[in-house]
Simulated scan of single mutants.
Amino acid sequence: MSKKIRSLDTIDDWWFNRLHEGDDWPERVVCDRLYAEYLKAASQLGIGRKRGPAEFGKRLAKLVPDLRRFRPVIETDPGVMKRVWCYDMPPLNDCRAAFDELVGQPVDWPALPPKKCERAQQSDDVVPT
């Protein structure tokens, strides 16, 4: 692991670990849940200065250039529908490539099965109606 990666900011370090694990890569994630995931990881790692939600969102937008925020109506609790801010997440491979570019070097990412790396693609033989 390079010196540059070992000296990442807390948000960048959390994001690097998230990209490295690649588990359960979502197509959509509630903004507050992703921020809570960062806070939990920062606490477990004993990171001193945790960033606030606004700073977290701004930094994430720089780490993930194609990140899009939107506010759909989703079920927040059983039977409770609310408009909630979410991120539309690019595919894992795209996020990893953006991180490589940000740190100025390729990272040796672990290989994942194709379904974990990309969103499902529409088959060529399916004609939209």
Rank of each mutant, 00 (worst) to 15 (best):
W25N: 07
W25M: 04
W25Q: 06
P26C: 10
P26H: 11
P26W: 11
P26R: 12
P26S: 12
E27F: 06
E27V: 07
V29L: 07
V29Q: 05
V30Y: 03
V30E: 07
C31Y: 03
C31Q: 03
D32N: 06
R33T: 04
R33E: 08
R33I: 05
L34V: 00
L34D: 02
Y35P: 01
A36H: 13
E37Q: 13
E37V: 07
E37H: 10
E37L: 11
Y38M: 10
L39G: 03
K40E: 13
K40Q: 13
A41Y: 11
A41N: 08
A42I: 01
S43V: 10
S43C: 10
S43G: 12
S43R: 14
Q44W: 05
Q44F: 06
L45W: 03
L45N: 09
L45F: 01
G46K: 03
I47V: 13
I47A: 02
G48H: 15
G48E: 15
R49Q: 12
K50S: 01
K50A: 01
K50D: 00
R51K: 14
P53E: 01
P53K: 03
A54T: 01
E55Q: 10
E55I: 04
E55N: 05
E55M: 05
F56T: 01
F56V: 02
G57S: 07
K58L: 09
R59H: 14
L60S: 05
L60G: 04
L60E: 03
L60A: 06
L60M: 10
L60Q: 05
A61Q: 13
A61L: 12
K62M: 12
K62T: 11
L63Y: 05
L63S: 08
L63N: 08
L63G: 08
V64E: 03
V64H: 07
V64R: 08
P65F: 06
P65I: 05
P65H: 05
D66V: 01
D66M: 04
L67I: 01
L67R: 04
L67D: 03
R68F: 02
R68K: 03
R69T: 09
R71N: 09
R71Q: 11
R71W: 07
P72W: 15
P72K: 14
V73Q: 13
V73F: 12
V73I: 12
V73L: 13
I74T: 15
I74R: 14
I74N: 09
E75P: 13
E75C: 14
E75S: 13
T76E: 13
D77F: 15
D77P: 14
G79Y: 11
G79S: 14
G79K: 13
G79F: 10
M81I: 03
M81D: 11
M81C: 12
M81R: 14
M81N: 12
R83Q: 12
R83C: 10
R83T: 08
R83E: 13
R83V: 11
V84E: 03
V84D: 02
W85T: 06
W85A: 08
W85M: 06
W85L: 06
